[in-house]
Design a protein around this nucleic acid. Structure first.
Length: 319
DNA sequence: AATATCTCCAACCGCGTGCAG
DNA sequence: TCTGCACGCGGTTGGAGATAT
């Protein structure tokens, strides 16, 4: 690895600091510097980065401290190689978001934008280039500038098909397909593939119950996709500001929507402003059934399905 | 074994944005 | 409105280690 800062020639710079000229170190962080910053952050939490740099006794600019904390020292960082699941998610999110690394990173817990960007530039880009003769390309929406456009991974050699049964991957893919016209081919791919994996939608229900329960107990928000059905649980702050789901900007309460994915459209994403969980079943635009409200923590998902959904859709009883 | 080239990735740089004075 | 500062983001750099010649 690289040598610590003091050994790198020409990598130090005189910068003004509080009316005095202080040597600001640059380059790699030493273990001692890491230790100082880590201890300070754990003790005092985040604040003004230039103050942090000074108060922690570091001869670094605040910007450098911020970067070191975010990309390396933060305790919630995940280490090690990207898993195939993460890779598939990155591929898909990049097809929608382009080089918006921070937004991609926001959907991969424990990963930083820098890490994902490096991974993309060093690994994925190369792989896609190698496969370019078999990849059909299309441009991501209104994003930037560089040559990533030529390596749109939307149809990345079919690799994503192996994850079609994975709820986490499918959740993100499905939700993204809802809000991006550019990913319609992805949605079609999802549809056609899921049909072959899961010829009838409802065996997913046990999984979704578990999945939704986890989401609700965490107070977060989530989404899912199983077979021909997709669902969205929304209303938490995470989704309110989710750039991929603009139609939920004004969501106030927790609610769950189910979609018949074969017929769904963005119009099926409604807004529910109350504080309850609201179950909705949407079998295509114009064929909308709105279910009961449930208090947080009291909802009986299986009971709901049994009593309400199955009454509306008796063929559920055959499952 | 020596050298050249490639790959990875930590860190830097410049720019845009938001906010306070 | 202007200015300065802090922050966050994406693009780029450059050194260490790996690999090829």
């Amino acid at each position: 690895m690289r040598k610590p800062a003091e050994t790198i020639m020409g990598r130090e710079k005189i910068m003004k600091n509080n009316n005095s000229k202080t040597k600001m170190r640059k380059g790699l962080w030493s273990p001692e510097e890491d230790d100082k910053l880590l201890k300070y952050m754990l003790r005092n939490g985040q604040g003004c980065w230039s103050d942090i740099a000074r108060n922690a006794g570091l001869e670094r600019c605040g910007k450098s401290c911020r970067l070191r904390w975010i990309n390396y020292l933060r305790p919630d960082l995940k280490r090690g190689a990207f898993s195939p699941k993460e890779e598939a998610l990155i591929l898909h999110l990049h097809s929608i978001l382009g080089n918006r690394w921070s937004q991609i990173a926001a959907r991969l817990p424990g990963r930083t934008d820098n890490e994902i960007k490096n991974f993309w530039n060093s690994t994925i880009k190369k792989r896609l280039k190698n496969n370019s003769s078999t990849i059909s390309t299309s441009s991501p929406p209104n994003n930037s500038t560089t040559d990533h456009d030529q390596s749109n991974p939307k149809d990345a050699t079919g690799r994503q098909f192996m994850f079609m049964h994975d709820p986490d991957i499918m959740a993100a893919m499905f939700m993204d397909s809802l809000s991006s016209s550019s990913s319609s081919s992805m949605h079609e791919m999802v549809m056609s593939t899921s049909n072959s994996l899961n010829p009838f939608p409802f065996p997913f229900l046990d999984n979704s119950y578990e999945y939704l329960s986890n989401i609700s107990t965490q107070g977060g928000a989530g989404e899912g996709y199983f077979g021909d059905f997709g669902f969205v649980e929304a209303g938490a702050t995470g989704l309110k500001s989710d750039p991929l789901i603009p139609s939920l900007d004004n969501a106030g309460g927790d609610h769950v929507h189910f979609f018949d994915s074969k017929k769904f459209g963005n119009n099926s994403l409604g807004i529910n402003g109350d504080q309850d969980i609201k179950m909705e079943v949407v079998l295509g635009v114009g064929n909308h059934w709105q279910g009961e409200n449930f208090k947080m923590g009291e909802w009986d998902f299986e009971g709901f399905l049994e009593s309400t959904v199955s009454n509306t859709y008796p063929w559920l009883n055959d499952l």
